[in-house]
Design a protein around this nucleic acid. Structure first.
Length: 475
DNA sequence: ATGTAC
């Protein structure tokens, strides 16, 4: 990305001021990460800055890359009282895609002797891949309950336990879901997809805590070196995708009717206080609950598999973070508390220490932030900081971020060879799609170390632990 | 991301 015309306002933040009625833009990251970023990110963030009612700056996180309308890694907050809008492209198609991180009591030494049969068992138990169905088949009324109840609904169905809830955003259930604004088509697509992983960059990964960066935070999060964790990365499956598809059309019509000039058709949006905006918000919240329920069921299936190898050993939820959402949150704007609708597309919420929404054991430390890396490199647990509120409406990076398109990756890697190479490095991959594995080659991603380092240096979150993959179930 | 395009 060309940085011409951007001012380096801190070593890890590059910005351009408001101009011509558009809001300021702001890019977080090292100069090296930003220079390597696709040109499209700047173009897309510049477009976002022209949307009505934007508060502060249109922002890109250090892992940003090109996306539909908004870049992935984009953050934008809107004031409903100032004509602020909600945009389906600002949330993304995979609504509430996120990571559930489970904390096991097992060490790598205990796990290593059974890692291969464990990976096989997880691969059999976790439905993964495009269009893959789960064991659960829901009726439309049951699906409405899931859309309203989220992970709380899943627990009531026998998947997991109430102790998980404080460690899930919104305690596992976001308010404001409106199943009546989700199309029957979207519901039909989801009936048999609860408790499934999906495809693309979704995965279930068995990881080991390889390095602790912050001992106090690690202690509060219950993490120690050599400990085994499980990260489940997935979202709202067919339902979320269909909600996105349906509302792109509806929001585009609304924008036309209300005379909102769209810098890019992909930024279809409507005022938060408009019928179409309100309906999208209700449908998106329903999809958020579907994603929360989905990860809750997958966490339960994971526990079942581990129990076969390690009976009667508790596996806790470290945290469950979403990274494709638009959420109403209170933020301080020029000294005044306001409710803003914060779009985070490929960005995690990162509340700092003391936030009332954090579970008691983490409140003094800050919210766990999970940067999911590629299958061959590793992931990070970070903690939200006080500075992220002022910098980015309490938002941080969500992953390594793609550095190369899927098509480019396919030309460069062969799935089978890649999986063999990772196995030689002690990382077991289980997948039905060798093509998918090639698209997800670690080399097609940015350097997760650089992203985590930049996230910390930019003041968005601070590093707590580095996690190395041991086994990965790929969709 | 996605019954990988209606």
């Amino acid at each position: 990305m060309n940085l011409d015309g951007l001012e380096q306002i801190t070593p890890y933040c590059f910005a351009a001021p408001a101009r011509g009625g558009a809001a300021p833009i702001r890019f977080f990251g090292s100069r090296a990460l930003l220079e390597a970023m696709d040109e499209k990110v700047r173009e897309q963030i510049t477009h976002v800055a022209r949307l009505p009612g934007l508060v502060g700056a249109a922002m890109a996180m250090p892992d940003a890359h090109w996306g539909y309308g908004f870049p992935i890694g984009g953050v934008a907050a809107f004031d409903p009282e100032e004509g602020g809008v909600i945009s389906a492209g600002g949330v993304g198609f995979d609504i509430s895609c996120g990571i559930r991180c489970l904390r096991t009591p097992f060490t790598l030494a205990q796990l290593s002797p059974v890692i291969a049969p464990l990976a096989d068992a997880l691969f059999r138990a976790i439905p993964a891949g495009l269009g893959e169905q789960g064991r659960l088949k829901l009726s439309l009324p049951q699906l409405d309950e899931a859309m309203t109840g989220g992970a709380q609904w899943a627990i009531a169905q026998g998947f997991g336990r109430d102790e998980d809830l404080p460690f899930i955003e919104e305690r596992g259930r976001i308010a404001g879901a409106a199943p009546e604004h989700v199309s029957t088509h979207a519901k039909e697509r989801q009936k048999a997809e609860m408790g499934t992983l999906g495809s693309g960059n979704h995965y279930l990964e068995v990881q080991v805590v390889e390095r602790i960066h912050d001992q106090a935070a690690a202690r509060a999060y219950g993490l120690r070196e050599g400990q085994i964790l499980v990260a489940i990365h997935c979202g709202s499956r067919g339902l979320g995708h269909q909600v996105g598809t349906d509302y792109l059309v509806s929001l585009a019509h609304a924008a036309g009717r209300l005379g909102i000039t769209l810098p890019d058709r992909e930024l279809a949006c409507a005022p938060i206080r408009s019928p179409e905006g309100a309906r999208y918000l209700g449908a998106m919240n329903a999809a958020i609950n579907i994603a929360l329920a989905n990860r809750q069921i997958l966490a339960h299936l994971t526990r079942d598999v581990f129990a076969r190898f390690f009976p009667r050993q508790p596996i806790d939820t470290l945290y469950d973070v979403s990274h494709n959402t638009c959420k109403a949150e209170e933020h301080i704007v020029q000294g005044v508390a306001k409710v803003l609708y914060v779009h985070r597309k490929g960005a995690t919420r990162a509340f700092g220490p003391g936030h009332a929404d954090l579970p008691a054991p983490y409140r003094a430390i800050g919210q766990p932030v999970i940067i999911g890396g590629s299958m061959g490199t590793g992931s990070y647990v970070l903690a939200g900081t006080a500075t992220s509120e002022a910098q980015s409406f309490s938002s941080a990076s969500h992953g390594a971020g793609r550095a190369m398109s899927r098509a480019q990756a396919l030309k460069r890697w062969h799935g089978r060879a890649l999986i063999d190479e990772l196995a030689r490095k002690g990382i077991l991959i289980r997948t039905k799609s060798f093509r998918g594995a090639a698209e997800e080659a670690p080399g097609a991603y940015k350097d997760v170390e650089a992203v985590a380092e930049a996230t910390e240096s930019a003041g968005l979150a601070r590093r707590v632990a580095f996690l190395r993959p041991k086994a990965c179930i790929k969709g």
